[in-house]
């Protein structure tokens, strides 16, 4: 066998040539991507700047003065979005887990529950969010049972109702992906049905669907912006208030930027995690 260091020292001329060629190719592709980036940026700028209404659009949407002036107000709104998001996240976690578990039960006695959750997930995945917001956001207060309901709360409830249907389906897929032998092993140790689900099945199921769950969370973050239609004074509504006073839409652009900033760390985290899982799976295959 080669001594490890010995092996390092002698590199054949063929290998040196190959390395040189690979380096050249890398440099070339970097240069090509830079050039194409510049060309495309120039093209976009050229088309925009030559269009007749560009000056007006720039003033209406990208006016730095208005971007800065609307910032404190919109930022206050984003905090409302974050609050609603946090509450909806907890609500969704609980409701979707219940739905997923009910949908994977098999006992005859639980048939009505299974039917209810099947109907629930089917209906709420089909309904547009905006329709849910109008129906629940104005319908429930209209019943006048609970007195006046906080608009933020109503918004959070709507988000929870819709997203629970999606997340429940993702969780169900995860639960069904766990091999039945895991359940058999847990039951044969004497664990009850509930213990098996809680200790053995769910932790594995959630791990399997983490990338999909994170993706749903990112989507949820942006859909929280819709709660303004039921009257919650969030970032979108604050931007609207600013626009109503100034006739300038830059506040909406600022709100959009805030939403992107809010989701960006999570988008990156999702990508990183998915890549990590992929790497690990490929490594397992190699062993």
């Amino acid at each position: 066998m080669f001594n490890e260091r010995e092996h390092e020292r002698f590199i054949s001329p063929i290998e040196l040539q190959r390395r040189e060629y690979r380096r050249m190719k890398t440099v070339r592709s970097v240069l090509i991507s830079c050039a194409s980036f510049l060309v495309f940026s120039f093209l976009i700028w050229w088309i925009l700047s030559r269009s007749e209404g560009w000056e007006l659009v720039r003033k209406m949407y990208f006016d730095p003065k208005h971007l800065v002036a609307s910032a404190p107000q919109v930022f206050k709104g984003i905090l409302v979005n974050l609050k609603i998001l946090g509450a909806a996240l907890v609500g969704t976690a609980v409701l979707s887990t219940l739905l997923a578990i009910t949908r994977t039960t098999k006992s005859a006695a639980l048939f009505p529950l299974r039917l209810v959750s099947l109907l629930y997930t089917s209906i709420f995945r089909g309904l547009p969010m905006i329709v849910v917001l109008y129906l629940i956001g104005f319908g429930i207060p209209g019943l006048n049972i609970f007195g006046r309901i906080d608009k933020n709360l109503i918004g959070g409830i709507c988000i929870t109702l819709v997203y629970s249907a999606y997340v429940a389906e993702v969780l169900r897929a995860g639960i069904e992906a766990i091999h039945p032998s895991q359940r058999a092993a847990a039951r044969s140790l004497g664990l009850s049905h509930t213990q098996t689900l809680r200790i053995v099945i769910l932790p594995q199921a959630i791990r399997k669907v983490v990338p999909a769950l994170m993706n749903d969370f990112v989507a949820m973050q942006k859909d929280v912006g819709l709660v303004s239609v039921v009257g919650a004074v969030d970032a979108v509504r604050q931007a609207g208030i600013y626009t109503a006073k100034t006739f300038n839409y830059s506040s909406y652009v600022f709100a959009g930027l805030m939403f992107i900033c809010m989701s960006l760390p999570f988008v990156l985290l999702t990508d990183w995690y998915a890549a990590k899982v992929r790497r690990r799976e490929q490594m397992e295959g190699a062993v």
């Binding site: 032998s181 895991q182 092993a185 140790l189």
Partner: peptide, 15 residues
């Protein structure tokens, strides 16, 4: 089941 120990062909450890 708590009184019976079972070992399966594919081990079935909890990963």
């Amino acid at each position: 089941r708590a009184q019976i120990g079972v070992v399966f062909q594919h081990y079935n450890l909890f990963p």
